[in-house]
């Protein structure tokens, strides 16, 4: 499954997706073509209901495309692909597990960790503790998710998405439900994790500042049926900080993106 050097990790070729059939058939995504390089951080922005989340499900193989082709590692995707981490707007933590046990979940399910989970549990728990500490949740492993604040739950959810060191991280508006301060703080946390681990990330969001802060490439999608109408390479140096978001360069990029999206609403 080794990709030839230089070829992208994820390739979408004229991918379409329609829900339903007959008169109720609804085209959610049309002719999406994009490449994601290994270690690249991309963001997908667009008006609500434009098929952003659909795009994410296609890349992970949770949904089969109705047209076109999705390739990962050069192989066509035919079902849920392995080695993916996911985080959603809702933290989707299991209330019956402690935060630590929640984050251990992928290690209980994903090979090869699953096979050695019982034997190496102590080692895995140590890994979780380190990850928790790196997102500022050191010592909270014993708490249940419902004993944590929304921001802390979302941090735990990120830990769960990353603990098995996935090659691809899917983020579906992961900071959407948080207040502005917590959100901006988590951008920093997310960037630090990415700079350290260099996974490939797909971020779906409608916050343009968030997209520009985090991503290498921003894709703008049109109204339904979603098409990619603009691709923006973000060349701002890393690590980006909150200060960066007030520079003229940053503001210009956000402004350009916003204008393109406004055209969709016109």
């Amino acid at each position: 499954m080794q990709a030839s050097p230089g070829s992208p990790l994820v390739e979408l070729r004229k991918v379409s997706l329609a829900y339903g059939s007959g008169p109720s058939r609804m085209l959610a995504l049309e002719d999406a073509t994009l490449d994601i390089a290994k270690g690249e951080f991309i963001a997908v922005v667009g008006p609500s209901g434009c098929g952003k989340s659909t795009l994410m499900k296609l890349v992970t193989g949770l949904l089969p495309p109705t047209g076109g082709e999705v390739r990962v590692h050069g192989q066509p995707v035919k079902g849920p692909i392995r080695g993916v981490g996911m985080a959603f707007q809702a933290p989707t933590l299991m209330p019956w597990r402690t935060t630590r046990d929640n984050i251990l979940l992928p290690l209980e399910v994903v090979e090869p960790h699953k096979r050695r989970f019982r034997r190496n549990k102590a080692e895995y728990i140590e890994r979780v503790e380190k990850l928790l500490a790196s997102v500022g949740l050191g010592g909270f492993g014993d708490k249940f998710p419902w004993q944590l604040s929304g921001g802390m739950q979302q941090r735990s959810s990120l830990c769960r998405a990353l603990v098995h060191e996935p090659e691809i991280l899917m983020l579906d508006e992961p900071f959407g439900a948080l207040d502005a301060f917590t959100r901006e703080e988590l951008w920093g946390v997310m960037q630090a994790l990415w700079l350290e681990r260099r996974f490939t990330a797909v971020l779906v969001t409608h916050d343009l500042r968030e997209a520009v802060y985090l991503a290498d490439t921003v894709y703008v999608m049109s109204r339904r049926p979603g098409r990619i109408v603009k691709v923006s390479k973000i060349e701002l140096p890393r690590p980006r900080t909150l200060e960066t978001t007030f520079t003229a360069e940053f503001v210009d990029i956000v402004h350009d993106l916003r204008e393109r999206i406004h055209m969709e609403h016109a």
Partner: peptide, 11 residues
Amino acid sequence: EMRDVMRSLGA
């Protein structure tokens, strides 16, 4: 979403 998390882990 919980189902998606599990499926994407290959459960």
